[in-house]
């Protein structure tokens, strides 16, 4: 019987410090057993448990795209016991990954549609996965316009800066990068909160899905903007966070109503969320 609690052993292949406060690092992992990499077959929007012997496990969204192959990456904020320990680990060290877990963004439904991606802060990880996945030559024809609104507190807090700059240069994806505030005279993108920039830049909800991932305050103020633009609740897609342990809908702590965020989520449409108790 396959044991869903058992992590795959991985080696830390590369560590990148993402933000100027050094609290966000991206960890790239390689599976010790190549067979495990095949078993860890994921879809953008899913997450996994990062597992450190002696410290425990944490659920983190997968930041890499399955189109990248060979490696799997996660961007981790330093907040608790496991993440503090992880931030002090070195390339080459061995730990575990358990997953992939949860559901994913509705790729089949979004096929042939416009896709608006709205992200804030360090919740941009599974959105990065989604963007890399969508602009891959195999997948790009499957979607119409791709528009991205991504905001951080200031320029130094943006994730994946090199990739953002590269995406800005492309003509098959519309990037709207913004920061809450900056005194950098060379800042060439937007200044303003994500909901405001969304309101300015997104012109239509026609034939479009919106994927929203960010801090609760951003989601709270972005939601009415999207509804005003005419996005139906079925086409506003959100990814939730919740305290988790097992990640497979058994240990009982991440429920919202009768839905387990780990197994039935973390991706829900706004229409689904409106039918669930407001307890998240």
């Amino acid at each position: 019987m396959h044991n869903p609690y058992l992590p795959y052993p991985v080696r830390i292949d590369q560590i990148t410090t993402e933000t100027e406060d050094r609290n966000l690092k991206t960890f790239r992992f390689v599976f010790l057993d190549p067979e495990d990499e095949k078993k860890f077959s994921y879809i953008p929007g899913q997450f996994a448990e990062l597992s450190i012997a002696g410290k425990g496990e944490i659920p983190i969204g997968i930041a890499s795209s399955p189109t990248e192959g060979g490696v799997v990456t996660f961007t981790v904020n330093k907040v608790g016991q496991v993440t503090n320990y992880l931030h002090n680990m070195k390339e080459g060290e061995v730990m575990g990954i358990r997953g992939p877990l949860g559901n994913w963004y509705p790729w089949e439904e979004m096929e042939g549609k416009n896709v608006v991606i709205i992200g804030g802060g360090f919740a941009f990880t599974t959105l990065r996965s989604s963007i890399v996945y969508m602009i891959h030559p195999d997948n790009r024809p499957r979607f119409k316009d791709i528009t991205v609104v991504y905001g951080a507190r200031n320029p130094g807090m943006l994730l994946y800066k090199d990739e953002l700059a590269a995406w800005e240069q492309r003509d098959d994806i519309n990037m709207h990068i913004t920061v809450d505030a900056t005194d950098d005279p060379n800042w060439k993108y937007n200044v303003g909160f994500v909901p405001t920039v969304t309101e300015q830049k997104i012109k239509s909800a026609d034939d479009a899905f919106a994927i929203v991932c960010g801090p609760p305050i951003m989601i709270k103020f972005t939601q009415p903007v999207l509804e005003k633009l005419g996005f139906p609740a079925e086409k506003i897609i959100l990814s939730l966070e919740m305290r988790m342990k097992c990640g497979i809908g058994i240990c009982g702590r991440c429920n919202i109503g009768d839905q387990y965020v780990c197994k039935d989520g973390p991706v829900f449409s706004l229409a689904q969320l409106k039918r669930m108790p407001p307890e998240y």
Binding site: A53, I58, E241, R243, Y280
Partner: peptide
Amino acid sequence: EGDRIRNWDACMFPIFTLHGSGHNPR
């Protein structure tokens, strides 16, 4: 040497749902 163990837990305890961010839905 160490063990990964599971223990009964309870939804009556506040830390049962406490997020890493400090947010707690219950």
